[in-house]
Amino acid sequence: MALLTVKNLRTTFRTDDGPVCAVDGVSLSVDAGQVLGIVGESGCGKSAMSLSIMGLLPTSATVEGSIQLGEHQLVGMPNSELRTLRGSEVAMIFQDPMTSLNPVMTIGWQLEEAVRLHQKVSRREARALAVAGLAAVAIPSPEERLKTYPHELSGGMRQRVMIAMALLNRPRLLIADEPTTALDVTTQAQILELMRDLRSEVDAAIVLITHDLGVVAEVCDEVAVMYAGRIVERASVDELFARPQHPYTWGLLASLPGRNRAGERLHQIVGSPPSLMNPPAGCRFAPRCAMAMDVCRADPAPALTEVAASGAVVACHLDAATRAREGARFASSEDSA
Protein backbone atom coordinates (compact mmCIF):
# COMPACT_ATOMS: atom_id res chain seq x y z
CA MET A 1 0.00 0.00 0.00
CA ALA A 2 1.54 3.24 -1.13
CA LEU A 3 1.87 6.05 1.38
CA LEU A 4 0.71 8.72 -1.05
CA THR A 5 -1.73 7.92 -3.82
CA VAL A 6 -2.89 10.68 -6.11
CA LYS A 7 -5.71 9.82 -8.48
CA ASN A 8 -6.98 11.95 -11.31
CA LEU A 9 -5.89 15.20 -9.73
CA ARG A 10 -7.24 18.30 -11.44
CA THR A 11 -6.21 21.70 -10.16
CA THR A 12 -7.91 24.67 -11.78
CA PHE A 13 -7.20 28.35 -11.17
CA ARG A 14 -9.86 30.96 -11.73
CA THR A 15 -8.31 33.93 -13.49
CA ASP A 16 -9.68 37.09 -15.06
CA ASP A 17 -9.14 35.56 -18.48
CA GLY A 18 -10.90 32.31 -17.65
CA PRO A 19 -10.06 29.07 -15.90
CA VAL A 20 -6.55 27.64 -16.19
CA CYS A 21 -6.16 23.95 -15.59
CA ALA A 22 -2.62 23.69 -14.21
CA VAL A 23 -2.84 20.02 -13.29
CA ASP A 24 -5.00 17.94 -15.59
CA GLY A 25 -5.75 14.44 -14.44
CA VAL A 26 -2.52 13.40 -12.77
CA SER A 27 -2.23 10.05 -11.01
CA LEU A 28 0.80 8.79 -9.13
CA SER A 29 1.86 7.05 -5.96
CA VAL A 30 4.90 6.93 -3.68
CA ASP A 31 5.90 4.38 -1.05
CA ALA A 32 7.60 5.15 2.21
CA GLY A 33 11.36 5.26 1.81
CA GLN A 34 11.04 5.99 -1.87
CA VAL A 35 11.96 9.11 -3.84
CA LEU A 36 9.67 10.06 -6.67
CA GLY A 37 11.01 12.66 -9.07
CA ILE A 38 8.64 14.89 -10.96
CA VAL A 39 10.35 16.45 -13.94
CA GLY A 40 9.13 19.21 -16.15
CA GLU A 41 9.74 22.73 -17.29
CA SER A 42 8.30 25.86 -15.75
CA GLY A 43 4.55 26.00 -16.14
CA CYS A 44 4.09 22.26 -16.49
CA GLY A 45 2.04 22.15 -13.31
CA LYS A 46 4.55 20.43 -11.06
CA SER A 47 4.50 23.17 -8.44
CA ALA A 48 0.71 23.51 -8.57
CA MET A 49 0.53 19.78 -7.91
CA SER A 50 2.78 19.94 -4.87
CA LEU A 51 0.83 22.89 -3.48
CA SER A 52 -2.38 20.93 -4.06
CA ILE A 53 -1.05 18.12 -1.91
CA MET A 54 -0.01 20.62 0.76
CA GLY A 55 -3.35 22.43 0.55
CA LEU A 56 -1.48 25.69 0.10
CA LEU A 57 -3.18 26.91 -3.03
CA PRO A 58 -4.83 30.34 -3.10
CA THR A 59 -8.61 30.45 -2.75
CA SER A 60 -8.93 31.00 -6.51
CA ALA A 61 -7.92 27.38 -7.08
CA THR A 62 -10.13 24.29 -6.99
CA VAL A 63 -8.79 20.79 -6.54
CA GLU A 64 -10.65 17.71 -7.75
CA GLY A 65 -9.75 14.04 -7.68
CA SER A 66 -8.21 12.15 -4.82
CA ILE A 67 -5.09 12.62 -2.71
CA GLN A 68 -4.81 9.78 -0.23
CA LEU A 69 -2.02 10.21 2.32
CA GLY A 70 -1.99 7.15 4.56
CA GLU A 71 -5.41 7.11 6.15
CA HIS A 72 -6.20 10.74 5.24
CA GLN A 73 -8.08 11.89 2.16
CA LEU A 74 -6.70 15.39 1.57
CA VAL A 75 -9.09 16.56 -1.15
CA GLY A 76 -12.06 18.21 0.50
CA MET A 77 -10.51 18.05 3.96
CA PRO A 78 -11.36 21.19 5.92
CA ASN A 79 -8.47 23.59 6.23
CA SER A 80 -8.34 23.35 10.02
CA GLU A 81 -7.78 19.62 9.81
CA LEU A 82 -5.34 19.93 6.94
CA ARG A 83 -3.34 22.38 9.02
CA THR A 84 -2.63 19.80 11.69
CA LEU A 85 -1.15 17.54 9.00
CA ARG A 86 1.00 20.25 7.43
CA GLY A 87 4.42 20.31 8.97
CA SER A 88 3.83 17.06 10.81
CA GLU A 89 2.60 14.37 8.40
CA VAL A 90 3.64 16.22 5.28
CA ALA A 91 6.41 18.82 5.05
CA MET A 92 7.81 20.88 2.25
CA ILE A 93 11.12 22.39 1.17
CA PHE A 94 11.04 25.29 -1.23
CA GLN A 95 13.20 26.48 -4.04
CA ASP A 96 14.67 29.70 -2.78
CA PRO A 97 16.28 29.44 0.66
CA MET A 98 17.04 33.17 0.50
CA THR A 99 13.40 34.15 0.75
CA SER A 100 11.83 31.11 2.40
CA LEU A 101 12.90 31.94 5.95
CA ASN A 102 11.37 34.82 7.87
CA PRO A 103 14.03 37.58 7.77
CA VAL A 104 13.09 39.18 11.10
CA MET A 105 13.04 36.06 13.29
CA THR A 106 16.01 34.05 14.47
CA ILE A 107 16.65 30.59 13.09
CA GLY A 108 16.01 29.21 16.58
CA TRP A 109 12.62 30.89 16.87
CA GLN A 110 11.54 29.51 13.51
CA LEU A 111 12.70 25.99 14.31
CA GLU A 112 11.13 25.99 17.76
CA GLU A 113 7.89 27.26 16.29
CA ALA A 114 7.84 24.32 13.88
CA VAL A 115 8.24 21.91 16.81
CA ARG A 116 5.74 23.55 19.11
CA LEU A 117 3.06 23.80 16.46
CA HIS A 118 2.77 20.03 16.47
CA GLN A 119 4.33 18.68 19.65
CA LYS A 120 3.30 19.52 23.18
CA VAL A 121 6.76 20.20 24.54
CA SER A 122 8.35 22.90 26.66
CA ARG A 123 10.44 25.63 25.10
CA ARG A 124 13.53 23.96 26.42
CA GLU A 125 12.65 20.65 24.80
CA ALA A 126 11.75 22.39 21.56
CA ARG A 127 15.13 24.05 21.65
CA ALA A 128 16.89 20.74 22.16
CA LEU A 129 14.99 19.29 19.22
CA ALA A 130 15.96 22.29 17.09
CA VAL A 131 19.62 21.83 17.96
CA ALA A 132 19.41 18.13 17.14
CA GLY A 133 17.67 18.97 13.88
CA LEU A 134 20.43 21.36 12.83
CA ALA A 135 23.07 18.81 13.79
CA ALA A 136 21.32 16.19 11.65
CA VAL A 137 21.74 18.33 8.55
CA ALA A 138 25.44 18.82 9.36
CA ILE A 139 25.33 22.44 10.43
CA PRO A 140 28.40 23.22 12.50
CA SER A 141 27.92 24.57 16.06
CA PRO A 142 24.12 24.31 15.96
CA GLU A 143 23.64 25.93 19.40
CA GLU A 144 25.10 29.19 18.18
CA ARG A 145 23.22 29.05 14.91
CA LEU A 146 19.95 29.27 16.79
CA LYS A 147 20.66 32.90 17.62
CA THR A 148 21.46 33.96 14.08
CA TYR A 149 19.13 35.55 11.57
CA PRO A 150 18.69 34.11 8.07
CA HIS A 151 20.65 36.91 6.39
CA GLU A 152 23.72 35.93 8.37
CA LEU A 153 23.83 32.50 6.73
CA SER A 154 24.88 31.44 3.24
CA GLY A 155 22.40 30.03 0.76
CA GLY A 156 23.51 26.47 1.33
CA MET A 157 23.21 26.88 5.12
CA ARG A 158 19.73 28.32 4.79
CA GLN A 159 18.63 25.40 2.66
CA ARG A 160 20.00 23.08 5.34
CA VAL A 161 17.95 24.98 7.92
CA MET A 162 14.87 24.59 5.70
CA ILE A 163 15.48 20.85 5.45
CA ALA A 164 16.04 20.56 9.20
CA MET A 165 12.80 22.46 9.80
CA ALA A 166 10.88 20.19 7.45
CA LEU A 167 12.17 17.07 9.17
CA LEU A 168 11.67 18.23 12.79
CA ASN A 169 8.32 16.52 13.20
CA ARG A 170 9.34 13.36 11.36
CA PRO A 171 6.94 13.77 8.43
CA ARG A 172 5.77 10.74 6.48
CA LEU A 173 5.83 12.68 3.22
CA LEU A 174 8.42 15.26 2.23
CA ILE A 175 7.88 17.42 -0.82
CA ALA A 176 11.00 19.15 -2.12
CA ASP A 177 10.23 21.76 -4.79
CA GLU A 178 13.41 22.51 -6.76
CA PRO A 179 15.48 22.35 -3.57
CA THR A 180 18.81 22.97 -5.27
CA THR A 181 17.93 25.19 -8.22
CA ALA A 182 18.83 28.45 -6.51
CA LEU A 183 22.15 27.14 -5.23
CA ASP A 184 25.66 27.11 -6.61
CA VAL A 185 26.90 23.93 -8.21
CA THR A 186 29.14 22.81 -5.36
CA THR A 187 26.47 23.74 -2.80
CA GLN A 188 23.93 21.81 -4.84
CA ALA A 189 26.21 18.80 -4.62
CA GLN A 190 26.34 19.20 -0.83
CA ILE A 191 22.57 19.39 -0.53
CA LEU A 192 22.04 16.42 -2.85
CA GLU A 193 24.49 14.41 -0.80
CA LEU A 194 22.64 15.44 2.35
CA MET A 195 19.35 14.32 0.82
CA ARG A 196 20.85 10.96 -0.16
CA ASP A 197 22.10 10.51 3.39
CA LEU A 198 18.81 11.53 4.92
CA ARG A 199 16.60 9.35 2.77
CA SER A 200 17.95 6.25 4.41
CA GLU A 201 17.56 7.75 7.89
CA VAL A 202 14.12 9.29 7.71
CA ASP A 203 11.71 6.67 6.56
CA ALA A 204 9.62 9.16 4.60
CA ALA A 205 8.31 9.16 1.08
CA ILE A 206 9.96 11.97 -0.83
CA VAL A 207 8.53 13.80 -3.82
CA LEU A 208 11.31 15.72 -5.54
CA ILE A 209 10.21 18.33 -8.03
CA THR A 210 12.83 19.49 -10.47
CA HIS A 211 13.52 20.57 -14.02
CA ASP A 212 16.94 18.94 -13.96
CA LEU A 213 17.22 15.35 -15.14
CA GLY A 214 20.68 15.22 -13.59
CA VAL A 215 19.21 15.75 -10.13
CA VAL A 216 16.65 13.05 -10.86
CA ALA A 217 19.32 10.56 -11.84
CA GLU A 218 21.25 11.31 -8.66
CA VAL A 219 18.55 10.83 -6.04
CA CYS A 220 15.29 9.41 -7.38
CA ASP A 221 13.90 5.88 -7.58
CA GLU A 222 10.89 6.64 -9.73
CA VAL A 223 10.33 9.43 -12.22
CA ALA A 224 7.24 11.06 -13.65
CA VAL A 225 7.73 13.42 -16.59
CA MET A 226 5.15 16.19 -16.74
CA TYR A 227 4.25 18.31 -19.72
CA ALA A 228 1.57 21.00 -19.80
CA GLY A 229 -0.31 19.71 -16.76
CA ARG A 230 -0.17 16.01 -17.60
CA ILE A 231 2.13 13.12 -16.92
CA VAL A 232 3.51 11.88 -20.24
CA GLU A 233 5.77 9.16 -18.94
CA ARG A 234 6.38 7.40 -15.66
CA ALA A 235 9.06 4.80 -15.00
CA SER A 236 11.75 3.69 -12.61
CA VAL A 237 14.79 5.90 -12.87
CA ASP A 238 16.94 3.24 -14.50
CA GLU A 239 14.22 2.42 -16.98
CA LEU A 240 13.66 6.06 -17.90
CA PHE A 241 17.30 6.73 -18.67
CA ALA A 242 17.90 3.36 -20.35
CA ARG A 243 14.69 3.20 -22.41
CA PRO A 244 13.04 6.62 -22.56
CA GLN A 245 9.67 6.29 -24.25
CA HIS A 246 8.15 9.70 -24.82
CA PRO A 247 9.43 12.17 -27.45
CA TYR A 248 9.34 14.94 -24.84
CA THR A 249 11.60 12.92 -22.56
CA TRP A 250 13.93 12.38 -25.48
CA GLY A 251 14.05 16.09 -26.05
CA LEU A 252 14.82 16.76 -22.40
CA LEU A 253 17.56 14.16 -22.38
CA ALA A 254 19.07 15.39 -25.60
CA SER A 255 19.13 19.02 -24.63
CA LEU A 256 21.15 18.33 -21.49
CA PRO A 257 24.31 20.26 -22.22
CA GLY A 258 26.63 17.76 -20.57
CA ARG A 259 25.88 14.75 -22.68
CA ASN A 260 26.13 15.81 -26.30
CA ARG A 261 29.12 15.07 -28.39
CA ALA A 262 31.44 17.84 -29.51
CA GLY A 263 30.83 19.26 -32.96
CA GLU A 264 27.29 17.96 -32.98
CA ARG A 265 24.50 20.46 -32.94
CA LEU A 266 22.52 20.45 -29.70
CA HIS A 267 19.25 18.66 -30.12
CA GLN A 268 16.55 21.21 -29.53
CA ILE A 269 12.83 21.04 -28.97
CA VAL A 270 11.32 23.71 -31.19
CA GLY A 271 8.93 26.31 -29.82
CA SER A 272 7.92 26.76 -26.22
CA PRO A 273 5.42 25.04 -23.90
CA PRO A 274 1.75 25.80 -24.70
CA SER A 275 -0.45 28.12 -22.71
CA LEU A 276 -2.61 26.19 -20.26
CA MET A 277 -5.37 28.71 -20.85
CA ASN A 278 -5.84 27.31 -24.31
CA PRO A 279 -4.04 23.98 -24.58
CA PRO A 280 -3.74 22.28 -27.98
CA ALA A 281 -6.11 19.43 -28.77
CA GLY A 282 -4.91 15.87 -28.55
CA CYS A 283 -1.42 15.26 -27.25
CA ARG A 284 -0.22 18.55 -25.81
CA PHE A 285 3.30 17.95 -27.00
CA ALA A 286 2.24 17.31 -30.61
CA PRO A 287 2.88 20.89 -31.86
CA ARG A 288 6.52 20.59 -30.79
CA CYS A 289 6.98 16.92 -31.63
CA ALA A 290 9.03 16.01 -34.69
CA MET A 291 7.23 12.67 -35.01
CA ALA A 292 3.67 13.88 -34.52
CA MET A 293 1.04 12.19 -36.66
CA ASP A 294 -2.49 13.31 -37.48
CA VAL A 295 -3.92 11.22 -34.68
CA CYS A 296 -1.73 13.09 -32.18
CA ARG A 297 -3.29 16.44 -33.01
CA ALA A 298 -6.87 15.35 -32.41
CA ASP A 299 -8.72 14.49 -29.23
CA PRO A 300 -8.72 12.26 -27.32
CA ALA A 301 -5.22 12.62 -26.01
CA PRO A 302 -3.21 9.38 -25.78
CA ALA A 303 -3.79 7.62 -22.46
CA LEU A 304 -0.99 6.40 -20.22
CA THR A 305 -0.42 2.81 -21.28
CA GLU A 306 1.88 0.19 -19.92
CA VAL A 307 5.14 -0.45 -21.79
CA ALA A 308 5.63 -4.17 -22.16
CA ALA A 309 7.75 -5.85 -19.48
CA SER A 310 9.18 -2.70 -17.92
CA GLY A 311 6.59 -1.39 -15.49
CA ALA A 312 6.79 2.00 -17.21
CA VAL A 313 3.79 3.87 -18.57
CA VAL A 314 3.77 6.33 -21.44
CA ALA A 315 1.16 8.51 -23.12
CA CYS A 316 2.11 8.41 -26.78
CA HIS A 317 0.52 7.20 -30.03
CA LEU A 318 3.81 6.00 -31.52
CA ASP A 319 4.10 2.25 -31.78
CA ALA A 320 6.34 0.37 -29.40
CA ALA A 321 8.94 -0.49 -32.03
CA THR A 322 9.38 3.11 -33.10
CA ARG A 323 9.61 4.27 -29.50
CA ALA A 324 12.22 1.64 -28.71
CA ARG A 325 14.28 2.51 -31.80
CA GLU A 326 14.10 6.28 -31.39
CA GLY A 327 14.43 6.14 -27.61
CA ALA A 328 17.69 4.20 -27.85
CA ARG A 329 19.28 7.26 -29.49
CA PHE A 330 18.69 9.26 -26.35
CA ALA A 331 19.34 6.59 -23.75
CA SER A 332 22.12 7.24 -21.27
CA SER A 333 25.51 6.43 -22.74
CA GLU A 334 26.23 3.29 -20.77
CA ASP A 335 23.24 1.40 -22.07
CA SER A 336 23.39 2.64 -25.63
CA ALA A 337 27.12 1.98 -26.00
Binding site: L56, A91, T99, S100, P103, E113, M162
Partner: peptide, 26 residues
Protein backbone atom coordinates in the same frame (compact mmCIF):
# COMPACT_ATOMS: atom_id res chain seq x y z
CA UNK B 1 2.82 36.72 -1.00
CA UNK B 2 6.33 36.29 0.37
CA UNK B 3 7.95 32.88 0.36
CA UNK B 4 8.45 32.82 4.13
CA UNK B 5 4.72 33.27 4.67
CA UNK B 6 4.18 30.19 2.54
CA UNK B 7 6.81 28.44 4.65
CA UNK B 8 4.92 29.39 7.81
CA UNK B 9 1.72 27.94 6.35
CA UNK B 10 3.57 24.81 5.28
CA UNK B 11 4.71 24.41 8.89
CA UNK B 12 1.08 24.19 9.90
CA UNK B 13 0.74 27.61 11.51
CA UNK B 14 -2.81 28.88 11.81
CA UNK B 15 -3.87 31.71 9.55
CA UNK B 16 -4.03 34.18 12.43
CA UNK B 17 -0.55 33.17 13.54
CA UNK B 18 0.74 33.54 9.99
CA UNK B 19 -0.75 37.01 9.75
CA UNK B 20 0.20 38.31 13.18
CA UNK B 21 3.55 36.67 13.90
CA UNK B 22 5.01 36.29 10.44
CA UNK B 23 3.50 38.86 8.12
CA UNK B 24 2.59 41.85 10.26
CA UNK B 25 6.04 42.48 11.65
CA UNK B 26 7.56 42.38 8.21
Amino acid sequence: NEDYVRTARAKGASESRVVVRHALRN
